[in-house]
Design a protein around this nucleic acid. Sequence first.
DNA 1: CGCATTTAATTTGTGACCCGAACTATACGA
DNA 2: TCGTATAGTTCGGGTCACAAATTAAATGCG
Lengths: 402, 402
Amino acid sequence: MRRIEFTNTQVASSETARDINRGVVLNLIRRRQPISRADLARVSGLQRSTVSLITEQLIRERWVVYGHTGRLPRGRRPTFLRLNEQRGILVADLRPTQTTLGVADVNGRLLSQEVMQTPPSPRDTAEHLAARIRHLMQVHRDLVFEGVGISLPGRFDLETQRVVFAPNLKWPDFDFKAAIEQATGMRVELENAANACVLAEVWFGHTEKVRDLVVVTISEGVGTGVFMNGQLARGLHGMAGEFGHVSLDPLGPPCSCGGRGCWEVYASNRAALRYYHESSQASDRLSFQGLLALAEAGDSLALKALDRMAHAIGSGMRMIVASLAPEEIVIVGEFMKHWPRFGPVIEAEVAAGALVGMPPRVRPAAEPGMARLRGTVALVLQKHFGHGVRTAEEERPQAVAL
Amino acid sequence: MRRIEFTNTQVASSETARDINRGVVLNLIRRRQPISRADLARVSGLQRSTVSLITEQLIRERWVVYGHTGRLPRGRRPTFLRLNEQRGILVADLRPTQTTLGVADVNGRLLSQEVMQTPPSPRDTAEHLAARIRHLMQVHRDLVFEGVGISLPGRFDLETQRVVFAPNLKWPDFDFKAAIEQATGMRVELENAANACVLAEVWFGHTEKVRDLVVVTISEGVGTGVFMNGQLARGLHGMAGEFGHVSLDPLGPPCSCGGRGCWEVYASNRAALRYYHESSQASDRLSFQGLLALAEAGDSLALKALDRMAHAIGSGMRMIVASLAPEEIVIVGEFMKHWPRFGPVIEAEVAAGALVGMPPRVRPAAEPGMARLRGTVALVLQKHFGHGVRTAEEERPQAVAL
DNA sequence: CGCATTTAATTTGTGACCCGAACTATACGA
DNA sequence: TCGTATAGTTCGGGTCACAAATTAAATGCG
């Protein structure tokens, strides 16, 4: 019996146009608020009538509210629209030793923030975090919460909904997402910290039209988030972006991932501490904060260690420049406090790696302290604000799968 | 004067749904031809009436023609539809020493094929190639030509419309595209050879639903084409994918790109020849074909050289595995003739580089000899067949730029 | 042969949506 | 007070997908 299987390709219905335009308008409001409907029409290219219908819908959905009335040299006054700040997002940044959590509004503004120790086991972490989240929900009863967004030093597989790779956490297999969802009753979104930083840059940064961007997070380890063609590259099991675990020397020092000589082994905070301890006689364990402070005070061994780290960061980035040719590389990490000093070292390495034309811009994150947490706001809002990606550029030729 | 600039974001009009569905139906016909309208409706999920209207349009546009009538156990017989093979594409694969060109139909089938020497200068190349193309157009007067697609060992910048990086061609700056367009009167599309192979795999291969794929071409140099989230990654100036010029050893042998110790220096055909000449006393210059023949005949030095090459290929791929986590890596090149022998070497290296779960499949191209040329067919058809990418999978969360 | 059954394809009516033009609502200044 | 400029709404028209009804064509059974 010749029977065709049901594949159900993604087709457009009569509502598809509205879906797309709703996303466009909502994102324009987000980026340019407060903004009038007339301006939305001008900027988007949609008709004023269409904009009115769409904004009416957005106001019904409570994403948008009326703001104050504008004032023009002549003519009727525009009614400004802005996002509804009564909608909150619960955000958390999970790190090996401590976890930051808080409440943010839809504009990525943090309304409150607190820090807790990260327990070693994922089960305890989920439990403590969920308790804190429930408490925050009580405190902010005036908000309607959209969900929980968590950034973590690991990779989250969308298929299996599990954290699949987090060498710096050393977690056993555990359904972290479900645990928090059950304990809070909220939808939870997990994402790698570097990917979260990408979202933060793209959503809340000044880089509006960047299509190709790589974020490098330097902390315990080295993480990278890859943004290509205006989308996050996740790869199989969400593992795309592990430049930190590309081996630069098969005989190098062992890495937490099980390999040897990974970029992370040379460019992370830990690496700098190792460099320092190798050269100094001091036997007491120093924290990276301590190392930064020493460098600030002019300690030459500390400066030397950070310089080696900077060279390692830069030379690893050459790999990123050649392989992905991003427009920008954004660096996030405590190390960036010393950017004025070590930035040129990194930039020189990157420039040497550019095969043609100008090397990519290398710069610190727009708001370094906030990047991870803000990114999780975008993570949660993503499914409401964007159906696919649509940048303001003209269409580029693209491949068609299927 | 407060005036909002005209950004004109990409919005949906009332015709957007049709555009999208037209693309879906056209691509379904391409992949499953011959196919009836009833089956198209079943597979796509569109209504039969909608499919009828769309196919009517496609037939008017002469992309689709009626095929023969089907036969079912009972009921009215379906009319099969298929692509119109009267539409041809002029294709060429430009390589440092020789250029292959030909005529293909919309299904990527080559109707004729010929080879010419590649002159050293881009001007002469354009001239000779255009003359051959004009001749082919005369020979195939029965076809309506859609355009010219050319793959080349270099990168093409869509912004400036120039070939920007082709170390193995050593071309001075020259507007190659315009030269051929003027000399033939056809629209010309240029693309990197590895990217062309990606298109060939995705369009004509059996891998229908792969979203993340990397093609590695091994010839004079090593090229890679990156396909992520169902799209070709082009990067700034079209430079994404130059894994071949990531330096593995800053003190290694010099590379044609000006760097040192690039992956290409260890993994290309040239590298294998170098390995061979280093170990053998033979002073006569061998071609890579010759080396392959020696290996086939059991020459141990030739086998050793190819084995070193295979190891180099595999170890460079670990970089790709870690950084992009593709589902598949496809290899194209003369070297693949010996895949049964050296495949396991490469696979073992790649498996060692996988950080979590199964390593990506590594395999030869679907039709190795055709990959580049077929890819250029897709390159030319791209703008007619696909408005953006739509795979059959459910929506994944994605970032929204702007 | 006639008729029920089955499947393909078309026709027709409906609702969603965008567009553009006309219209209403405000504001300012001569 | 009226002309002009700007914001926002209303309404008619066109495109489109959808669903149900209809037509077309083939099979097989009584």
